[in-house]
């Protein structure tokens, strides 16, 4: 039974992320268009909303190029190593009161640890491509993702301390509205570090378009590249859903189905903010990125943890 359930959930997670990515790419093109005095997709569907119906089959029908010098098995399966952890992380998000697809007592730890495996996939793809620009991108990604794990985990830890549990469902039960102002700094740190985790602007150094052309996935074409893109959008969706749940209260604002709508709206808001930042900000440089992580985000996250810890004494 557990096996069937797991299989079903796996399918569901892939559908969620794929569907989310399809909507996300359209949404991003529209947001970018608004920021850049453009319109974005217009031709397929209302306001171009079905543009991805053309893009996805096209990518499916594209030739699948494996470069001559590439380490072929590594090259072929690296996209899955990027995508799978993100789909797995989606399992612990508390979607409903008392319900998460995978209701683990160490759900927060699971959520923080599993997507970090994705960095291995990125390194594999970068190495497997046998391409200098990809290799630089992969190395940048490794340094960046592992460093930003620290402030990200610390910021979530402040919520764990307040709730007294690592089980997302219990965190949602214990959640109080005044946690939002209390952990606002923590949320900003989580938000920033998550952007860095998903390699999006202004932290998109691994795929820096103006320097490395496309970075670690420069040699991927067709559907393998689409899996990378799905992974990127999936990471954005999963991180936003989780952040909207544990930091912003998710469905707790309103009872029943209205609460779920608020949850999705909050997550959409967070996703839009991620896009807004990407299309407005210039890109960091590697050393600035590291300095920012270790001298600004990490101490702030620690401070937030201390504040949360002190407050939790009276809870």
């Amino acid at each position: 039974m557990t096996f069937v359930w797991g299989l079903l959930w796996g399918l569901g997670a892939v559908m969620l992320i794929a569907g989310g990515a399809v909507i996300g790419v359209w949404w991003e093109r529209k947001v970018a268009g608004r920021i850049q005095l453009r319109l974005g997709p217009q031709q397929i569907g209302p306001a171009g909303s079905l543009q991805m119906l053309a893009d996805v089959p096209k990518l499916l029908f594209k030739e699948d190029i494996v470069p001559d010098g590439a380490d072929k098995p590594v090259f072929r399966y690296a996209p899955l190593a990027v995508f799978a952890p993100i789909a797995m992380a989606a399992a612990v998000i508390p979607f409903w009161a008392g319900w998460a697809p995978f209701d683990s007592t160490v759900g927060v730890l699971f959520f923080l640890a599993v997507p970090a495996i994705g960095v291995i996939g990125i390194l594999l793809s970068a190495w497997g491509s046998h391409n200098t620009l990809s290799t630089i991108g992969g190395l940048r990604a490794a340094a960046q993702m592992i460093s930003y794990e620290v402030p990200r985990s610390l910021s979530v830890l402040s919520i764990v301390v307040l709730a007294g549990s690592m089980r997302p469902v219990e965190i949602m039960d214990a959640w109080r509205w005044w946690w939002v102002p209390l952990t606002l700094v923590g949320f900003v740190i989580y938000f920033t570090a998550s952007i860095a985790e998903m390699n999006r602007g202004p932290f998109d150094l691994p795929e820096a378009e103006s320097e490395l052309v496309a970075g670690y996935f420069a040699d991927y074409s067709g559907f393998r590249w689409a899996i990378f893109m799905m992974g990127e959008y999936g990471a954005m969706i999963v991180a936003s859903l989780f952040g909207a749940a544990v930091f912003l209260g998710g469905f707790r604002w309103l009872p029943g189905i209205a609460g779920f709508v608020v949850f999705i709206a909050l997550a959409t808001l967070v996703i839009t903010a991620v896009m807004w930042i990407k299309w407005t900000f210039p890109r960091f440089r590697q050393d600035h990125l590291m300095t920012f992580c270790w001298t600004v985000l990490t101490p702030l996250a620690l401070l937030q943890l201390v504040v949360a810890g002190v407050v939790s004494l009276w809870l």
């Binding site: 093109r29 171009g48 893009d55 378009e209 052309v213």
Partner: peptide, 13 residues
């Protein structure tokens, strides 16, 4: 982008 045509600097895409 209205026509679904976006420039990508990477030939593979």
């Amino acid at each position: 982008d209205r026509h679904g045509s976006i420039p990508r600097p990477d030939p593979r895409h």
